[in-house]
């Protein structure tokens, strides 16, 4: 059984079903990313795990204990808010020491643990400062250190990187992963940024409209999306969806290549691709166009700059996808289904 078990968790705010039946099991030492568009209920889910929100229905188990009705302090969790929520009137030291004070830890232990956490995050020289004298990145570290000193069973992070600038975000992501791996803290990480999710997560739970659509490791989520939502939420540009012969066909733009480039001996499916527009992004070219003979047929191809085929807008070319890279979805429900017996291009 996992360190954290969510069973049939639901939360309604009046009419709004913010979280609508979530089951999730998180193993010890794992970093699970909860990924989903804005307003899909990620924060609400997290708050229910933390005990800041009482579920309308369902159970939360942490370390084999049913904590559904327990307040946050009785749950053995730590949380980092998006705003970092540092206590503005306390020094960095006192901020980090606060959870220990609340636990009435002895003074030496407190100093020792704060040193240790500050050491891990490289903020020893900031201990005497007040939060307003810190940069965004430093604040984030202080908030993490404060979560760390508790040595919690599970650490909850709600978009902790979204207040950092793009460059810092990449390095902070890297550090966060290092630190999580080294210490082996079970972590739930909420984000709406798919790159963050793919880069960080041992597993990703993709949420939409209050429900978990798919749980799996990043590769699995990317390669084998469980439904059209997951397929189109991940990847940039997202998976192409074509409707043809009554099937919904999906394939990634980077697997959709000109026939002459798509060599190799894997079996291919060919499509006539009418090219509408070319976008050159430096490292890639994005080709926007339509597949002839399909109903829902807007399609994008992503060519790495190493592919030196010259293409002209307005022309029609033969493009191909490996049969193994094709995904089939049910037209009505959008759910993934088995490939039909034999269907060719």
């Amino acid at each position: 059984m996992g360190v954290v078990e969510l069973r049939g968790l639901r939360k309604e705010f009046g009419e709004v079903k913010a979280v609508n039946g979530v089951d999730l099991s998180i193993q010890k030492g794992e970093l699970v990313v909860i990924l989903g568009p804005s307003g899909c209920g990620k924060t609400t889910l997290m708050r229910m795990v933390a005990g800041l929100e009482l579920p309308t229905d369902g159970e939360v188990l942490i370390g084999d204990r049913n904590v559904t009705a327990l307040p946050p302090r009785a749950r053995d969790i730590a949380m980092v808010f998006q705003s970092y929520a540092l206590y503005p009137h306390m020094t960095v030291f006192d901020n980090i020491a606060f959870p220990l004070k609340a636990r009435k830890a002895p003074k030496e232990e407190m100093a020792q643990k704060v040193e240790w956490a500050a050491g891990i995050l490289g903020i020893q020289r900031l201990l005497a400062r007040k939060p307003r004298q810190l940069s965004g990145g430093e604040r984030q570290r202080v908030a993490l250190a404060r979560a760390l000193v508790k040595e919690p069973a599970v650490m909850l992070l709600d978009e902790p990187l979204s207040n950092l600038d793009a460059k810092l975000r990449v390095s902070a992501r890297d550090e966060l992963q290092q630190f999580q791996r080294n210490l082996g803290i079970t972590t739930i990480f909420v984000t709406h940024d798919q790159i963050e999710a793919m880069g960080l997560g041992d597993r990703i739970a993709v949420m939409n409209a209050g429900k978990v659509r798919q749980v799996g490791d990043p590769q699995e989520i990317y390669d084998d999306p469980a439904d059209t939502f997951v397929a189109t939420f991940l990847g940039s540009p997202p998976m192409n969806l074509l409707e043809r012969n009554g099937h919904l066909l999906g394939f990634r733009p980077e697997s959709f290549l000109p026939l002459e480039v798509a060599r190799g001996d894997r079996e291919k499916v060919t499509f006539p691709f009418h090219l509408g527009r070319v976008e050159n992004l430096g490292s890639d070219r994005l080709l926007y166009g339509t597949v002839e003979g399909a109903e829902r047929n807007r399609t994008i191809s992503k060519l790495p700059s190493t592919v030196e085929v010259s293409v002209e807008a307005g022309e029609t070319y033969d493009f191909a996808v490996c049969r193994a890279d094709l995904r089939y979805f049910d037209k009505e429900s959008g759910l993934r289904k088995e490939p039909p017996p034999r269907e060719g291009g």
Binding site: A78, Y87, F98, P99, A102, K150
Partner: peptide, 27 residues
């Protein structure tokens, strides 16, 4: 007082009076 900060104090394990005297009042 921002709600985040009070909730953070709860998560950090503080009980009512500690939150009141060590977080709310100083703020």
């Amino acid at each position: 007082i921002p709600r985040d900060i009070l909730e953070q104090a709860q998560v950090d394990g503080a009980k009512f009076w500690r939150i009141h005297f060590q977080v709310s009042i100083p703020m």
